[in-house]
């Protein structure tokens, strides 16, 4: 555990990861979608005039019914999909970590090699990358499993490897697309706590897509509620709690009240859906 360090990133910042940092137009950890629309080639309108600004250090959750374009918004921020119109500011660079809904590990590679991958693609040798890889694995509590193969791990552990792989490049922006949706509730609670701690420790900006109101309230500093057909943002709810919250927050009045507000907004979003 490295909880006692003054700055968790200081040890890794000096590593020969990158050349001189590029000068982005917006602050490194912030990302913004300006009037973004996305229409797929089959004619489906996934997003319509979405404005979304995430400031450095924020933890923003996107919630909404299926098909509201929250994953599409995230993929645009990652640079995996280009918007049909509108602009993306920040995001999309080599500084972005992305966690998929599935762990998406290479089954033929050990835990170490899976986490090494992003650095390896930057032509860092195994020895040069070792300290950063081991540090990322320590952050997610998997130091003992460096030599294991993905199939030997539980679902929760695989997801931790996936998170370690996203963290190994020291991202300023971490994008997570329903990362815990496939996990059981106990594992999910545990990983939620871990994510809160990592966020407090690393200060990374996080954009988190989820279906769960409770998860979004517990994790976020701000919740953006989206509606579908066409995908757009309909509400923006601030969560009145410090970033370094703990389990006690789950039973606090502020939590209950925010869950209520977010649920109401979500019901509003779903009431607009013609299929309900």
């Amino acid at each position: 555990m490295t909880l006692g360090r003054t700055s968790p990133l200081s040890g890794m910042m000096s590593s020969p990861l990158r050349g001189p940092p590029p000068r982005p137009a917006v602050k490194a950890g912030s990302v913004a979608l300006r009037n973004v629309s996305k229409t797929f080639s089959n004619g489906t309108v996934a997003l319509s005039n979405l404005d979304l600004e995430v400031r450095e250090g924020e933890f923003v959750s996107l919630i909404g019914p299926s098909g509201c374009g929250k994953s599409t918004a995230l993929r645009i921020m990652a640079g995996l999909t280009a918007p049909s119109s509108g602009t993306l500011e920040g995001g999309g660079g080599a500084d972005v970590g992305f966690v998929f809904q599935e762990p998406t590990l290479m089954p033929w590679a050990t835990v170490f090699d899976n986490v090494w991958l992003p650095l390896r693609l930057r032509r860092m040798s195994r020895t040069a990358a070792a300290s950063a890889v081991l540090e990322a694995l320590a952050l997610v509590g998997l130091s003992k499993f460096t030599g294991s193969y993905p199939r030997e791990l539980s679902g929760g552990m695989k997801m931790r490897v996936s998170i370690a792989r996203a963290l190994v490049i020291e991202p300023r922006l971490l994008l997570m697309d329903e990362p815990f949706a496939a996990l059981d509730e106990i594992t999910r609670f545990k990983l939620n706590n871990d994510l809160i701690r990592l966020k407090a420790e690393l200060g990374t900006t996080v954009v988190f897509v989820t279906h769960s109101v409770y998860e979004s309230v517990f994790l976020s500093s701000r919740i953006v509620v989206m509606a579908s057909r066409p995908g757009r943002a309909i509400d923006d709810i601030a969560v009145p709690a410090p970033a370094d919250r703990d389990e006690a927050f789950r039973s606090s009045p502020a939590y209950v009240e925010t869950c209520r507000a977010a649920s109401l907004a979500l019901h509003g979003a779903m009431a607009e859906d013609d299929y309900l």
């Binding site: 555990m1 791990l153 389990e247």
Partner: peptide
């Protein structure tokens, strides 16, 4: 369902 507090990643015990 409140889970005991503490450094969470220390040991993934159930796993």
């Amino acid at each position: 369902s409140v889970i005991a507090n503490g450094p969470a990643f220390e040991a993934p015990d159930p796993e």
